[in-house]
Design a protein around this nucleic acid. Structure first.
Length: 263
DNA sequence: ATCTATTCCTGGCTGC
DNA sequence: TGCAGCCAGGAATAGA
């Protein structure tokens, strides 16, 4: 499940192949993944020159000389460089130097061409790696819901998903059900530090590969081996030994240590 | 406005 | 070996 570290890893691995290249041909195979007219989208992409590939939160933007290709990996999206198209290939870009293949088993992802970005996509908050503490703390005050749910809200901060939300709450000693606005300034400072620290550590390990995730070269990440709580329900807490608990918050599996994380 | 529940989607897993 | 039933969750959407 690609979150900020996985998307960052994909962007880093794909960008050198794409920058400055020309799109010769585009193909789309899924009505779900690409909602616009396939023929029209392909026509608009043909001949476009890629200027750069960038990321905001979990969103990927391929800036073109005219318009932008928006890519969201959803749950199982993969951007693969020079891979053979397969059963789950939903879109494909043939460039002058190779082929970019978009595979997505569950089709929660998106590959769309826009002349200009829709307002909906602009609704996301500041990127998790770029937000300063003052802004982070001010935004926390605006939410009365559980901190876990708030961290997952992309308009609060962009890029955090289920795995890293659990990990940074554990690292900060904050209970996932704690009310966002009730978190003390000192705790919030800790959470802000861990927001950066956890995501940066995950990027250094090229992301977490639980089931599907691989980068554009098909390589798995290794950060899943360093998860303290995610996916460790019933196993002993690495800090205190008490069993990691699993509850559901905002319809998402949430893992925490009842002893290390107090409300 | 803010928050919560529902929906989409399919491979993988469990249990009979 | 087969198969029904459930689970995983990002984010748009609808409803409270």
């Amino acid at each position: 499940m690609p979150e900020l570290p996985e998307v960052e890893t994909v962007v880093r691995s794909i960008a050198p192949h794409l920058a400055g290249r020309t799109i010769e041909r585009a193909e789309f195979y899924s009505k779900r993944v690409t909602r616009g007219s396939h023929a029209q989208t392909a026509k608009r992409l043909a001949g476009r020159i890629i200027q750069r590939v960038r990321r905001r939160g979990k969103q990927i933007f391929v800036d073109l000389d005219h318009g932008v290709l928006y890519i969201h990996l959803g749950m199982t999206g993969k951007l693969l460089w020079n891979a053979a198209p397969g059963k789950y290939t939903r879109a494909l870009l043939e460039l002058d130097n190779g082929t970019l293949v978009y595979d997505d088993v569950r089709q929660f992802g998106r590959v769309e061409f826009f002349e200009a970005l829709p307002k909906l996509l602009e609704r996301v908050g500041p990127d998790a790696l770029g937000i300063d503490f003052a802004d982070f703390y001010a935004r926390l005050q605006k939410h009365r819901g559980a901190i876990k749910a708030v961290l997952l809200n992309q308009s609060f901060v962009a890029g955090v998903g289920n795995i890293y939300a659990d990990e940074m709450l554990f690292a900060s000693g904050i209970h996932p059900r704690a009310q966002a606005r009730r978190i003390s300034k000192a705790r919030a400072q800790k959470l802000h530090n861990n927001l950066l620290a956890v995501l940066q550590a995950a990027i250094q390990h090229r992301g977490s590969s639980i089931s599907d995730y691989v980068d554009s070269a098909g390589e798995r990440g290794s950060f899943q081996n360093l998860h303290a709580v995610y996916g460790r329900a019933g196993k002993p807490c690495l800090e205190c030994g008490s069993p990691i608990r699993r509850i559901v918050i905002a319809q998402r599996g949430t893992h925490y240590c009842a002893r290390c994380q107090r409300a």
